[in-house]
Amino acid sequence: MMKLTGVQWLRFAIVLVLIGLVTEAITLIELTPPTFVVFAFLGLPCMIVGMLIYAVYVLRHLRKKDAL
């Protein structure tokens, strides 16, 4: 399995959060059943996963520096 560096993980998180924000913006502007489903099943999980990746990165970074 390909091992990602810290910066690559953060870049991955950026993409995920961006996907989430875009789907959310579309849903808020034009709420239809398809946009609702795309936001609920794609955008929302993407945003949550992106946040978690960032949080894990920060925690590991802090632990590495003995800040925790």
Partner: peptide, 8 residues
């Protein structure tokens, strides 16, 4: 990556 999504 954390505060804005958490609020939005």
């Amino acid at each position: 990556l954390f505060v804005a999504p958490l609020l939005l």
